Amino acid sequence: MKTIILAAAAALTAGAALADGHAQTIRMGTEGAYAPYNFINDAGDVDGFEIELGNMLCEAAGYTCEWVTNEWDSIIPNLTSGNYDTIMAGMSITDERDEVIDFTQNYFPPTESNYVALSEDADLENGVIAAQVNTIQAGYVAESGATLLEFATYDETVAAVRNGEADAVFADADALMPTVEESGGELMIVGEGVPLGGGVGMGVRETDGEMREKFDAAITAMKEDGSLNELIVKWFGDDAPQY
């Protein structure tokens, strides 16, 4: 009975908010450390492809966005515990994650993961490979013959290669390319690309089906009118995969 009363009260509150013309506030969880998907800019604000996209999706779905940053390692547990309502953090859609949370359709197409090293001779098969903890790349390395060295953030994985702790870093191509370009030739892509995951999607709790459907509809509309492709090109360049 208590559950029924609480549910009814929540419905009345939501209805009142809509009647007053106030959009529901959705807390959007992100890492703020995975450029150009998401990062903290010079002004100290969360910024990036997913922030701009998330704000557009919220507006289209009739929500107000409020951004929350969270360390990658605990980003899914803090979604399921209610600390925020969505995850937009460069998160690839995988079967393993889909057992714990739900995903919208992808808003960034499936892409390859790449190795980056200081030398073309880097040992990718039996060497030490750095990857961010709890990523599909870390899982892939763990199942290979290489030694996995995990770090909490993407920047730490790159630093491990630069300081000699790791022979290479394995990560999303879209994150690695700007790093390689900005290195001035110090870092280079080595080996073959590896296709992993089902693209990047918005994570939501399994109980928030109505919200997921609204965001799905907004993503579909942006794919159909070309505005999602425009945003991808803006943040990732003309060579980025598009819809």
Rank of each mutant, 00 (worst) to 15 (best):
F170I: 01
L148E: 01
S113N: 14
V180I: 15
E59W: 00
A175G: 08
L187C: 03
V200W: 01
A175F: 03
F108A: 02
P36H: 12
M91G: 02
G209R: 11
V100W: 00
E96R: 05
A217K: 14
E120L: 04
P195C: 10
M88W: 11
G54T: 07
Y63I: 02
G15E: 09
E120D: 13
A166L: 01
I136Y: 01
W72D: 07
V116K: 00
F39D: 06
N106H: 15
Q137R: 11
S183Y: 04
A159E: 14
T64H: 10
S144I: 09
D47Y: 12
S113R: 06
A19L: 14
P195G: 11
L231A: 13
A138C: 08
K234W: 02
D98I: 00
I40N: 04
L148W: 06
Y140G: 13
D239C: 04
H22D: 14
M211D: 08
T111E: 13
P36M: 07
G15Y: 05
V128I: 15
A11W: 10
A33N: 11
L176M: 14
A117K: 03
T69Q: 12
W67P: 04
V116N: 00
D20Q: 11
K214N: 12
L196S: 07
G185K: 05
G29Q: 06
D208C: 04
N134C: 01
A9V: 09
E210P: 10
M222G: 03
A175K: 11
L118N: 02
G44Y: 10
M177L: 09
T104S: 15
Y154F: 15
E165T: 14
K234V: 00
D73G: 02
K234P: 01
A221G: 03
A218E: 08
G237V: 06
T64E: 11
T135V: 04
P110T: 11
V233H: 02
